[in-house]
Amino acid sequence: MKIALICGVSGQDGAYLAKLLLDKGYQVYGGSRDAQMASFNNLSRLGIRQDVKLVSISINDFRSVLQTILKVKPDEIYNLAGQSSVGLSFEQPVETLESISIGTLNLLEAIRFSNLPIKFYNAGSSECFGDTGKLAADELTPFRPRSPYGVAKAAAFWQVANYREAYQIQASTGILFNHESPLRPERFVTQKIVMAASRIAAGSKETLILGNIDIARDWGWAPDYVEAMWLMLQKEKADDYVIATGETNKLRDFIRVVFETLDLNWQEHVRTDPAFFRPTDIAEGHANPTKANHQLGWNARYTMDDIGRLMVEARRVK
């Protein structure tokens, strides 16, 4: 039985990945800063709360990381921890850089120090690319991040590449474009839209206030994307991969799909406010996932229209 350690198991991706690995017969350890106090609601929502062995680990603390690795002796480590909101990173740049960059470095150094044959997955981000215009970013596209979050993820990416080359650690980064699900917290704009539209459909008289709705992104389905993470660590040679649908849509299109699914006209319920605009933002995000398609045999099964409808349906069931 393979053993996996998921750092950041309480988040959207951590929960879906834990379920995937459990279904594949893994023994799954879930790391959290305080495993006794954390709620792990996402694990409960997926019905796997009792199946994941929870451990307390602070990835900003090297000793904590090393002790956990020596105790668990995992075959695979998935680093999904750290501050995960681009918007919040402008308000908390130091916390963002430390939790992502220093946390990743501690994990890599602890793997090196342990001398265990551990395969390592690092959660990268399309935010590293910045604004590429109409260019579909692939693994060779230069990084020009436009947020503290993107800067931190870019630093972590190069740390992984350095440890792979310098110490032959089997470490890979998945450069994931936006991916959503019903497990997203409301601070993410897609869930904010779904929850507000659902309340309006139920009779609320509120108006949904958003920032720039003309931004364009490649939106995918989170359960698809965690499968790509697992596939990366099954390869004999570690490498980095862009994970995306290859289809880009404007945020206003996502809004339209969500409201139409609820038989509403979004233009009657939504307005924009420049106060919600970010200091710097990416106008468009385009992706080229060809390498993952060919080398991993991975393809996104759902695109933006599907995701809007699936998130609305999840609210209806709830």
Rank of each mutant, 00 (worst) to 15 (best):
I3Y: 05
I3G: 00
S10D: 13
S10G: 11
Q12E: 15
Y16I: 03
L20E: 12
L21V: 04
Y26H: 13
Q27R: 11
Q27L: 11
V28R: 09
G30I: 01
R33K: 14
R33C: 09
D34F: 02
M37G: 05
A38H: 13
A38V: 09
N42A: 07
L46T: 02
R49Q: 09
R49L: 15
Q50A: 07
D51M: 08
K53R: 13
L54D: 03
V55A: 03
S56V: 12
R63I: 13
S64C: 06
S64V: 10
Q67S: 14
T68Y: 02
K73F: 06
I77F: 02
A81P: 05
G82I: 12
Q83W: 03
L88N: 11
E91Y: 10
L97T: 03
S99E: 06
I100Q: 00
S101Y: 01
G103P: 03
G103F: 04
T104Q: 14
T104L: 02
I111N: 04
N115P: 01
L116K: 03
F120A: 05
G124F: 00
E127V: 00
D131T: 06
T132C: 03
K134T: 15
A137E: 12
F143W: 01
Y149I: 00
A155T: 14
A161Y: 01
R164S: 05
Y167D: 13
Q168S: 14
S172P: 10
T173Y: 02
F177T: 01
F177G: 03
P182W: 07
L183A: 08
L183P: 14
R187S: 08
V194R: 08
V194S: 10
A197M: 08
A201W: 10
A202F: 06
E206S: 11
L210S: 12
I213G: 03
D214W: 10
R217W: 11
D218Y: 06
D218A: 10
W219D: 01
G220Y: 03
E227P: 06
E227T: 12
A228R: 13
M229A: 14
W230F: 05
L231K: 15
Q234M: 12
E236A: 13
K237Y: 02
D240T: 10
V242M: 05
T245Q: 09
G246E: 03
G246A: 05
G246F: 09
K250C: 07
R252L: 08
F254M: 09
F254P: 09
I255C: 02
V257T: 15
F259R: 00
E260Q: 13
N265Y: 07
Q267Y: 04
R278P: 00
I282R: 14
I282D: 11
A283T: 07
E284V: 04
E284P: 04
A287Y: 04
K291Y: 14
Q295E: 15
W298P: 11
W298D: 10
N299H: 14
D306M: 06
I307G: 11
V312T: 06
R316K: 15
R316Y: 09
V317F: 07
